[in-house]
Amino acid sequence: MTDLTELTHQSDLASLRQSYEKGVLNRADVDPNPFKQFKHWFDRALKSNQKEPYAMTLATASKSGRPSARTVLLRQFDEHGAVFYSNYDSHKGEDLAENPYAEVLLFWNELEQQIRIAGSVEKLTEAESTAYFHSRPHGSQVAACASLPQSGVITTREVLEQRFQALLQQYPEGSVVPKPEFWGGYRILPEVFEFWQGRKSRLHDRLQYRLVDDIEAVSTTQKWVIERLMP
């Protein structure tokens, strides 16, 4: 058995460093609307060499507060929030049923940037979920039906493969695959955004947009406050 201490020593993890020097984040340069600021950064990430810039870490927690994280794909983003899709019976689905709050993190190493979005979570309508489900590749639709229960224990890989092949015979290419009732979309309703730009010597730039009540406003009861955070 390999000694973990030896592994750490061999790779010298404690001495690994990367200096972030590709950009700065000034308060005067950001849009007062966090949704527009997100679009500005996201469009740039799409044009960069970053692989799958729409991949994001989703953090949820159970009713008791036990956290869980995994990677999901951002499939829609607009003024209503950030959308991803999942099996409702999955671990994250169970968490969100008990505790409908979540946070996502998008990290773009090529740009030395990351964005955090936190807020409450709601399910999409059945019509919205069905429309997206049928826009997916045929194999992905069948796989969603085969993966039940998601995160459930199976004895071998062959169990999954056999179920997938059986469903392919039932729903061959070109046929309509019914969207499972246990599958659909979630929308995170943002309450906090944080835009992070890596800087030299770990003096990173962090700007937070926080949604607060504005009882003095005439046209709206909400507004975003922008705050600079210590790195």
Score class of each variant (00 low, 15 high):
R44V: 14
Q18M: 05
L4D: 00
L168E: 13
A146P: 03
T155Y: 12
S15W: 01
E112Q: 14
L25I: 02
G81T: 11
H80M: 07
D214I: 04
N87I: 05
S219R: 07
Y85T: 09
L211S: 15
L124H: 10
L148R: 14
K92T: 15
P32C: 09
F38A: 06
Q208F: 02
Y209R: 03
A102V: 06
K39N: 11
S64W: 03
M230F: 08
E227D: 15
A118M: 12
F77W: 11
Q141C: 08
I215L: 07
S147A: 13
A82R: 06
H9V: 00
L46C: 12
W183P: 13
R210W: 04
E52M: 09
Q150I: 07
G185V: 09
T221K: 06
E126H: 14
L111I: 14
T71V: 15
H40C: 12
S19L: 04
L4W: 00
R44C: 06
L160R: 05
Q165L: 05
D3S: 13
D214Y: 14
A14G: 13
S140W: 01
G139R: 04
S11N: 03
I226C: 12
A14N: 05
E126T: 12
V142P: 04
L4M: 01
A217V: 02
L211R: 15
Q141S: 07
K22D: 08
E110L: 12
A146D: 04
I226R: 04
G174H: 13
L189G: 06
K123F: 11
I154R: 12
K223E: 03
Y209E: 08
Y171F: 14
R210N: 15
N49M: 01
Q197C: 02
T220M: 01
G65E: 03
C145P: 07
G184D: 15
G198M: 01
A82V: 15
S120D: 13
T156W: 01
S86L: 02
Q114H: 14
V83D: 10
A14D: 04
Y20L: 01
K200R: 10
W108C: 07
F84L: 09
P137Q: 12
A217L: 08
R70L: 03
